[in-house]
Design a protein around this nucleic acid. Structure first.
Lengths: 213, 213, 213, 213
DNA sequence: CATGAATGAGTATTCATTCAT
DNA sequence: AATGAATGAATACTCATTCAT
C-alpha cells in the first residue's frame, strides 16, 4: 500500500497546469510560508523554481494571481479531504462522524502545513474578488463541523453545547497547528489527527466537574 | 461607576515612553495587524500617529525595532495577565487553576486581539537577537499550563492525558482566536474566557465514550 | 590620416562590458570628478548615461561597486601605460628610463585627468576589501620608479639621492596635476610629460649650488 | 625654546572665536579630512565636539559656513607662514629665498596636513562667493614663488626655466604631500621642508645631461 | 516559452536645518 | 548658549511588471 512519498506541496497542483507553472506555485508556497506574501519578491519565486524573474508572467498574471491559485487549489484540496462520503453521509453515528471529520481536517493541515500556512495567513493580500471566492470555499468548513455537532446534540450523543463556539474551537485547533507543526516533530499527521479527534469528542461530552462561576 | 474604557492597544505601553513614542507603537500595532510587518511602510506608522515620516526615527532605531518593542511589551503584559498569584500558587485545586489560567489567557488575547495578532504572527520579521529574546518570554506560557496539567494528572483530578499535546491544544485555542475574534462579535472577552476554560476542563476529563482506535 | 580623437574617459573600459555599462562608468567618472563620490547621487550617474535611476543596478551591485570598477580599470590602464617594455627593460641607460617612465606617468595622468582625479581622490569611499585590491595595484607605481632611481644611483648616473623621498616627489608631481590640469590649458599631455621628465632628471642630478643647512 | 606641543589643528583658530566655536571647527576639520565635506554630517561635527546637533547652528550659519571658516583661516595662516619678511624682502639671494619659501610652504603643509587636506580638496563644496574669496587668497602663493624664480632667472642664479611650469610643480609638491603625509612617518615637517627646498633648487639648476627629445 | 534589460513607483532611512524650551 | 524633537527633501536601493528578442 505504501507509495513513494511525494512532496506534500507539489502534489496539490492538478494536471491542468504545465510543470513549470506547478514549479512556480511550489516555490511560491515555500516563499510565502517563510516570508509572507509582501515579504516575498517575484524574483524569489522565479529563482526558487530555477527560472528568470520574467518567467512568472508567462504563467501567471501577477504575484497576487499566484497567491490566488495557491489559495484556491489549497482550499479545494482541503475541502475534498474532509468531504469524503463516509464523513458526509456515513451510516455511522455522530461521534464517529465527528472523529472522522476532525481527524481528516487535522491530518490534512499537518501534512500540508506549509501550504496551509499560506492558505490560512496570507489571504488578506488577495484582491476583493479573489478573497470573496476563497471565502466562499472557506464557509464550507464550519458547515461541515456544525452539521455533525448539531445532529449529535439533537440525538443526545453530545452534551447540549453551543455549536457555534465549539465549531470555532475545533477549527482553531486544526488551523493553528500550521503555525507550530514540524514534519520532524514527534507526531505524524495521522497521530495528531487521532489525538485531536479524541479532544473533539471530549469537548462535546458532559463535564463531570462543577461548572465555571 | 463605569470609567471610560481605554483603548486596549494604548494601555499596553508603560510610562517609560513619551506620549509620542506610545502613539507610534499604537499606530504600528494597527498597521502591522492589518497589513503585516512587510506590508506596512514607516510612513503608514508615522502618519497614523499624526507625524512626519522621519519622526519615527526620533524615537525608534528602525521599523524592526518598533516591532520588537511591541512584541516585548505585549508578551510581558500577557505573561503578567496569566501569572497572577492566585493562578500560580493559589490554594485551589488543579481544575480551578486550569480554569483560571485558561480564562485569563483567552480573555487577554480576546481583549488585546489586535496587538496579540502582531505578537503571534509577525515575529518572523524580528532579527535573530530580538527573536530569541521574545522566544525566551514565550517559553513561559507552555510552562504555566504544563505545571497545572501535570499536577492535576498526578493528583488524579485529571485523566492521564498527554500533557505536552494538551498544552499545545490549549495554547492553540487562545492564540488562534486573534485570527477571528471581533470586538463587536457575540462574545465578550470574559465570556469567551469562561467558555474556553470549560473546554479546557473537558479536554482533561475522562471521555465516557469508546476509546479512539 | 588623423582619426577622430576618442573621449579619454570612454576609452578606459574594456570590451568585456556592454555599452550601457560603459556609458554608466563614463557618466560616473564625470560625476565623481566634479562632485566627489558622496556628493554624487545614483540618479546623477544614471541620468548622465540617459537611463532611469534603477538602470544602474542592472549592471552594478551598488554605487560603491561603480567606483571600484572605475578605480580598478583606471589603475590597471595607468599601470599598463608606464609598464611598457622599453620602460621596464629597455637597453637604455637609467636617465633615459627615468625620462620614459616619468613622461608616460605624467602624460597618462594629464590625458586622463578626469578619471585619474577619481582614482586618486575617491578611494576612501571604497570598502576595505576593494580598497586593498586597489592598494595592491598602486604599490606597483613606486616600485617602478624606485627601480630606475636605485639603478641610476648605483651606476653613478644619478647623484646619491634618497630614493624613497625622490620617488614620492615624482609621484606627487604626476598625481597632483589631476587637481589643476585642464585640457584647454597651454600644455598638451605630451608636452607636460616631457617637461616633468626633465624635472625628474634635474631632481636626481648633483646640485651645483651650496648644500642645504 | 620648546613650547608645549599643541594640536596643529586647534592652533589654527584665532581668539576671536569662543572656545565652543573653535572646538566645532577642530571637529569639522577632522571629519572633513577623513570623510570629505559631503560625507560628513552636521551631527558628526557636533558630536565630535561633545555637543548636540543643534549646537552647530548657534555658532555657524550652515555646514558650508563651517567649511568656509576653516578654508579662510587655514589659507590665511598658510600665507602668513610663507610671507614672513625674511622671505619676502630678505637681503638674501634668490637661491636662499627659494629655499626659505619652499621649506616654509612644505613644512606648514606637513605640520597641518589634516587641515590642509580640507583646504586643498574640499573647496568645490564652497558656494561661489566663498570660493572666490578663498581663490583670492590662493592666488598669492604662485605669486610668491614666481617672484623668486623670475628674479633668480633674471639675475642668472637659476637656469632659464619656464617660471609658470616650475611654480606649478613646486606648489604640487607642497600640496600633494597632504595626501600621503603621516605625523608618525619618517620625516618631520622640518626635515621634509629642507628636502623639498633642495629639490626646488635642483629644479631651477641647469641639468648637466642631454636635453629631452 | 523564456529571458535580459529596463523602469516607474516606491521603501527604509538619513540629513541639514529649525524651533520651542 | 544649548538641546530634544521634529521635518521636508533627499538618497541608495528594491520591486513588480513590461517588452523586445
Amino acid at each position: 500500500m505504501t507509495r513513494n512519498v511525494v512532496d506534500p506541496v507539489t502534489e496539490l497542483w492538478g494536471d491542468d497546469l504545465v510543470p513549470v507553472a506547478r514549479a512556480l506555485l511550489t516555490s511560491a508556497v515555500h516563499c510565502f510560508a517563510r516570508r509572507g506574501f509582501t515579504g516575498t519578491t517575484t524574483r524569489d519565486i522565479s529563482t526558487g523554481a530555477g527560472l528568470s524573474p520574467a518567467a512568472l508572467y508567462v504563467h501567471f498574471r501577477s504575484k497576487e494571481d499566484v497567491l490566488f491559485e495557491i489559495a484556491r487549489r489549497g482550499h479545494l484540496r482541503a475541502l475534498e479531504a474532509v468531504s469524503v462520503p463516509e464523513v458526509l453521509a456515513g451510516a455511522d453515528d455522530p461521534p464517529s462522524r465527528l472523529r472522522a471529520v476532525m481527524s481528516r481536517f487535522v491530518t490534512w493541515h499537518a501534512l500540508h502545513h506549509v501550504a496551509a500556512r499560506v492558505c490560512q495567513y496570507e489571504l488578506a493580500a488577495l484582491n476583493p474578488e479573489h478573497l470573496e471566492e476563497i471565502a466562499g470555499i472557506r464557509r464550507e468548513f464550519p458547515e461541515l463541523f456544525r452539521a455533525v455537532i448539531v445532529e449529535g446534540v439533537d440525538r443526545g450523543d453530545f452534551a447540549p453545547v453551543d455549536a457555534g463556539r465549539v465549531v470555532r474551537a475545533l477549527l482553531s485547533l486544526g488551523v493553528d497547528l500550521v503555525r507550530w507543526y514540524r514534519s520532524d516533530g514527534p507526531d505524524s499527521p495521522e497521530q495528531l489527527g487521532r489525538f485531536y479527534a479524541d479532544l473533539a469528542v471530549s469537548m462535546v461530552s458532559a463535564v463531570p466537574g462543577p461548572p465555571a462561576g
